[in-house]
Amino acid sequence: MSRRRGKVEPRLMEGDPKFNDKIVAKFINCLMVDGKKSTAQKVFYDALELIQQKTGLDPFVVFNEALENAKPQVEVKSRRVGGVTYQVPIEVRPERRMALGIRWLIRYSRSRNEKSMKSKLAFELMEAQKGTGSSIKKKEDIRKMADANKAFSHYRW
């Protein structure tokens, strides 16, 4: 994007039909494949019902805790200085934190070995809520990489 243009206004989203929550609506939109929103909603709500059956906890609270646990605090960006590329640790903006957390939860849910997508998503959310799972491992790996490259933080731009 050119620097001469004005700032882009974020689009206003409506909440999802069941909880009227914008974060859930965003999650469902990211879960959606080929424009099949009703299928994505069914998968998400069925996963929440499965969480309710397995844990006995409020599934909306489990979802929010899982998303909070999956959000990264820092990440590394490549910065080229004098012919050498450094991995520079930077703090993640709140909008990007949310997007990365959602993306990782969905990506690692899809790569699980359970039978259906609703069970894959449910078990990934339950593991993320406990602080385990592939999405949490990804967050920890990036944090460790940022800690290892803390010496290059003065190259931040």
Rank of each mutant, 00 (worst) to 15 (best):
residue 123 F to T: 09
residue 125 L to Q: 04
residue 112 R to N: 12
residue 115 K to S: 13
residue 135 S to H: 00
residue 137 K to Y: 13
residue 122 A to M: 03
residue 139 K to G: 03
residue 117 M to A: 01
residue 82 G to C: 12
residue 118 K to Y: 13
residue 90 I to W: 00
residue 116 S to H: 09
residue 135 S to C: 08
residue 88 V to Y: 02
residue 104 W to C: 02
residue 119 S to P: 03
residue 126 M to R: 04
residue 129 Q to G: 10
residue 139 K to L: 14
residue 139 K to V: 06
residue 96 R to M: 08
residue 121 L to R: 04
residue 102 I to F: 05
residue 139 K to C: 03
residue 93 R to F: 05
residue 110 R to V: 09
residue 135 S to P: 01
residue 127 E to I: 03
residue 119 S to N: 11
residue 138 K to M: 09
residue 103 R to Y: 03
residue 131 G to I: 07
residue 127 E to Y: 11
residue 98 M to R: 13
residue 134 S to F: 02
residue 129 Q to N: 14
residue 94 P to R: 04
residue 88 V to H: 03
residue 87 Q to K: 11
residue 84 V to R: 12
residue 130 K to V: 14
residue 116 S to G: 08
residue 117 M to R: 02
residue 97 R to T: 05
residue 131 G to R: 05
residue 129 Q to W: 14
residue 84 V to P: 02
residue 90 I to E: 07
residue 141 D to Y: 12
residue 137 K to E: 15
residue 86 Y to W: 02
residue 130 K to I: 11
residue 101 G to K: 03
residue 130 K to H: 14
residue 108 Y to V: 06
residue 98 M to K: 13
residue 111 S to G: 09
residue 102 I to Y: 01
residue 105 L to M: 04
residue 136 I to R: 02
residue 96 R to D: 08
residue 114 E to A: 15
residue 109 S to V: 07
residue 129 Q to A: 12
